[in-house]
Simulated scan of single mutants.
Amino acid sequence: MSDPVYLGHNATTPVDPRVTEAAMPYWTEFFGNPSSDHPYAEQPRRALAAARRAVAELVGARPGEVVFTASPDGGLDHGCQQRDRCAATDP
């Protein structure tokens, strides 16, 4: 019998070890909210800006067009808001 195939990735997703390694400093040392206005936010803010630039380059976008959300629902909600905003201004 072969190994089972896991189809529950909509609930949980295994994290690539490279992602874990890259994120670990922000879970343990640089844990400030990048949107905050205090010294703990500086390093996370720089890292977030670098990630936004890297993703933008990867997909051929401008950094300001890259939006990170905490979940697929957040991304879907953001997309719907942008669609509605465009529809409201379209002649």
Rank of each mutant, 00 (worst) to 15 (best):
N33A: 06
D77F: 14
T12Q: 09
T20P: 01
D84K: 10
V59L: 03
V19K: 02
A51Y: 00
Y6T: 07
D16Y: 09
A50T: 10
S71D: 04
S36Q: 07
Q81T: 13
Q43C: 12
L7S: 07
A70E: 12
Y6P: 03
A61C: 04
R45W: 06
R85K: 08
A70T: 12
P14V: 04
A41Y: 04
T28I: 06
C80M: 15
Y26M: 02
A54K: 04
E65F: 01
Q82G: 01
R83F: 14
R85P: 03
P72G: 13
D84L: 11
H38F: 10
A50H: 04
H9R: 12
W27I: 13
D3G: 03
E42F: 10
Y26T: 00
E65M: 08
T13G: 02
H78Q: 05
A23K: 03
L7K: 08
Q81D: 10
R62V: 07
A11N: 15
C86Q: 14
T89I: 10
G32Y: 03
V5M: 11
R53N: 11
D73C: 10
P63G: 00
E57K: 06
R18L: 13
L58C: 08
T28H: 08
T69A: 11
T89W: 09
A56Y: 04
Y26D: 00
A22E: 03
D16W: 13
Q82V: 11
T20E: 15
E21Q: 11
D16S: 09
